[in-house]
Amino acid sequence: MLSILGALGGLILAPFAGGLLSGVDRRLTARLQSRAGPPLLQPFYDVLKLFGKEPKVTNAWLVFSAYVYLIASAFSLFIFFMGGDLLLLFFVLTIGAVFQVVGAICVPSPYSQVGAQRELLLMLAYEPILILVFVGFAMCTGSFMISDVFRLDSPLLLKMPLLFLALGYALTIKLRKSPFDISAGHHGHQELVRGVQTEYSGPYLALIEIGHWLDLVLILGLCALFWHTSGIGMCILVAASLFTEILIDNITARLTWQWMVQKQSLLAGMGFALVNLLWLYVA
């Protein structure tokens, strides 16, 4: 019961944390581009404003998809806070990702269609890596439960450094950071407007945005699991991961999807994961 309350509390706090992190992201990005950047609370202003806007959609499925995306993201984060099953978490996360794409495809708009196709390719790139990383967890702890990670004595980072790198790849893709921002880039709007998010607007875009914050929290939480033994260690890992993501976002150019799937995901990401898994298997 206590754990449920804790998880619910975490779930309520998560959007605030996610929004703040996203504000830090925008601020840091601005600094890296020698700009002043928006206020730290800018993401909250954006989302609140979006909630106050008039609804304008092409069809009702879009609304349904936006809600399902947010619910699925919240749900997977809840599973995470409950210390639940990593695979279940992954599959629930897939519901959200799939519905975001379904919502984009169900509108006959060329921009959201292209974005959706690219988003599917992003999913193709990160999903196998995530599964392999979770298998790595299972090999170290003996189960897919997140709670079992905390029974270990030594940080997972020592046993699966390459899997951490692979996870880094998967996270960059999942968060659509450059060089993997092909489906809905802030920076690519001349080419495909907002890609998969083009047709979501007003309050529904706000739902998607909050879902994205929750994903960010979940993903950083997964990174933190690699150094579960110390609170400071977790903070360091989270901060380092976030900073690296932002840095990479700012210093790389967009890739084509072929490059992303073949070279980056299959060769580098899956390669790292497989080598580490074999190492765990042998050790």
């Binding site: 925008r26 601005a30 700009r35 002043a36 950047g37 928006p38 206020p39 800018q42 202003y45 954006d46 802030h186 709007h189 001349q190 407007v193 907002r194």
Partner: peptide
């Protein structure tokens, strides 16, 4: 962007 302006296109 100091004023929260984003070019959405």
């Amino acid at each position: 962007e100091r004023f929260g302006v984003v070019n959405t296109g």
